[in-house]
């Protein structure tokens, strides 16, 4: 085995990216919980923690750039670094969605909800397992595992459509519901996007392993 330093750099990038991924995943879970429980303190904690993800994103991007410039990687190593660079962007977005959801939670913390939150926690649950599976597939470079994410995305999409329709009826019933219904629609939309980012990460694992770029 040669190029030990390079191997170490690749392993470190992967490790830091995965811990950034776990943190984003956790923050999304907490943001939805803060919304559900109308927990002001928790929402504020999520908002503050997003900054940590933004900082780490910049650091990881710099590290990847330096490694590409100095090690001139090719083939599998190059695919790993490009995958890591693009995954970093997806993971950073996850942090932003968590922050947005927490801000929505703060906005409505003292109101009674117009409906019991059922679809949103369900979407959250599926989207988060998508994130978890996609990150794990990246860690273990397991393309078959990555493919498990595909049908889950359809489930999230269909829950999103249902949530959207339901909230529209609340708006039609009473204009006073508009503000909260829009907020909840936005939360649902964010979770639908979380699932899309997880799908991106999963598809990149397939690319990393098989070398073929496919977007499904």
């Amino acid at each position: 085995m040669t190029r030990n330093k390079f191997e170490q750099q690749l392993a470190e990038i992967k490790k830091r990216l995965l811990s950034m991924g776990s943190l984003s995943e956790e923050l999304i879970g907490l943001s939805v919980q803060s919304l559900k429980d109308q927990d002001e303190e928790l929402a504020k904690k999520v908002i503050a923690s997003d900054k940590q993800i933004d900082r780490e994103y910049v650091n990881i991007e710099k590290k990847i750039m330096r490694t590409i410039a100095m090690q001139a990687p090719v083939a599998g190593d190059l695919r790993l670094l490009l995958t890591a660079l693009k995954n970093a962007t997806d993971i950073e977005r996850l942090g932003d969605y968590a922050k947005d959801i927490a801000e929505i939670a703060l906005r409505h913390k003292d109101e009674e909800y117009i409906t019991k939150l059922i679809n949103i926690p369900r979407m959250n649950e599926i989207a988060l397992s998508m994130v978890q599976i996609s990150l794990e597939s990246f860690e273990t470079e397991d393309a078959d595992m990555a493919r498990q994410v595909h049908p889950m995305d359809d489930e999230v999409d269909s829950l999103y459509d249902r949530t959207f329709r339901l909230l529209t009826t609340y708006i039609l019933e009473n204009p006073k519901n508009i503000s909260q219904a829009f907020s909840l629609m936005l939360v649902a939309r964010h979770l639908e996007r979380v699932a899309d980012h997880a799908l991106n990460i999963a598809n990149r694992t397939i690319y990393l392993k098989e070398g073929d770029i496919q977007y499904i």
Binding site: M1, T2, R3, F6, P73, V74, A75, G76, D77, L78, R79, G211, D212
Partner: peptide, 20 residues
Amino acid sequence: KIFTNPDNPETERYITGKFG
């Protein structure tokens, strides 16, 4: 093809500097 996704794992190990 060789430098992005070679067919032979031995080629990959050589060009990525893992042996040779």
